[in-house]
Nucleic acid binder design. Structure first.
Lengths: 229, 229
DNA sequence: AATATAATGTGTATTTTTTACACTAAGTAA
DNA sequence: TTACTTAGTGTAAAAAATACACATTATATT
């Protein structure tokens, strides 16, 4: 007696929640869609996985095609599969997030015309999003809030050289609350992943702050360590 | 100009990693498969999602059909989608875990004959598993290790009434190391979710320990709280 | 040159949390 | 009654988290 064989009638997509920090603001990357469904709507960059790609590979490729960005390490955080979430059929989407350093160099030019354009938008001024993307974004924000408390992932948002005040700004934006300056510095330095560059900020109109960079080797070690019970 | 429409040529499945605690051992629930591929192999209980079910609903239904268990709260933790992971086509699987109290009452009887049988197996004595299920299990174990450090989820593994020593045993099994008895008790009680039942263990051959139960209301509150930076 | 401005950068005392550590109490079995 | 086995308990020390305020420095203005 034979059970029903798998029926390949579904699709799997990837959606990317990319956080960026720019001009003191926390932003995410959205595209303006050029295709139905939700043509002309804003949405998270996302598309169907390819037949010969793992989920991770799909995520990188899709991000590249829709935004022009490459070499971005993204982390998978949840799969969304409500029945009616895609109007054209059953599409389960796997969501990824990443934290990015913004600033001049990385241009946004969709290679596919599936997206009209890609743009960084302040997370407090999000437009109405297509599909269930608002929900996917909300979960992504929650996720990084939890993460940032345990690991110094905030550095991924900053340029190579940064000041401690900038780091604190990122934390305050993500956590949505003010932190004490002295305690913050004490704690963030205690991770042991910041290197004092013996170098000052340039082009600021008041006292220049010391620049730091972060030590990738030590940073990587932190990820393997676990807090013990 | 028209982009390619979504092509519905994939399948999505659910796999469940159910942890159970019994006789001082940490076990997971496996099925012996009755269908190709991997007929006669051991595997995690899992099957394809249904057309009219969300992922969560599918997970509950599949678990029930393959093991007879119902009313189990499972949590999604990762999606696995390597290209060759399923020999019959592209199947992306979404993994769920749950912690269960074992013991007499819950019988294991697969309703579907997709599984020959379901059985609890010590996590240190796992057989070779079909598909990439060993990998899925490994990730699930990692996940609960991290979780148990922050939230008292171990109680989900215990019977309604339990002793503090039993709780400690569960922690030690999951974390894979010995813990100090006094410090453990201090900490576990400090969560404020345990209720002293003023009642002793019965039928043990030495000094009987005090029984506790856990307070579901306070327990639920813990989940919403966050540790602040 | 002097002054105002705005952000940088620093220390300590207090409280809370974590850790390390060893013996007595109670119940059962022989 | 004795031997055995597990339950149950406290304290001191160390480490981490918190609360809190002012002097310093570079620039811009007059």
């Amino acid at each position: 007696m034979e059970e029903v064989l798998p029926i390949f009638n579904s699709a799997v997509s990837i959606d990317c929640v990319l956080f960026g920090f720019d001009g003191g603001e926390l932003k995410i990357l959205l595209i303006e869609r050029n295709e139905e469904p939700f043509k002309d709507w804003w949405a998270l960059p996302g598309y169907l996985i390819g037949d010969d790609e793992s989920l991770d590979q799909s995520a990188s490729r899709i991000l590249h095609e829709l935004t022009g960005l490459s070499d971005i390490y993204m982390e998978q955080y949840y799969a969304f599969g409500e029945v009616g979430r895609h109007p054209q059929g059953r599409v389960v989407t796997v969501a990824y997030y990443a934290l990015l350093r913004l600033g001049g160099d990385k241009a946004l030019k969709p290679l596919s015309n599936y997206a009209k354009k890609a743009q960084w938008i302040n997370i407090n001024e999000l437009p109405k999003l297509g599909f269930d993307h608002q929900h996917i974004f909300d979960k992504g924000l929650e996720k990084i809030k939890r993460r940032i408390k345990h690991l110094p992932i905030a550095f991924e948002l900053l340029p190579e050289k940064f000041t401690l005040t900038q780091v604190q700004n990122v934390y305050e934006l993500i956590l949505g609350k003010k932190l004490d300056k002295r305690n913050f510095r004490k704690k963030i330095l205690s991770f042991g992943v910041l290197k004092d560059l013996d170098e000052k900020q340039k082009g600021v109109s008041f006292r220049a702050a010391t620049l730091y960079k972060f030590d990738k080797r030590k940073y990587a070690k932190l990820f393997s360590k676990e807090i013990s019970f």
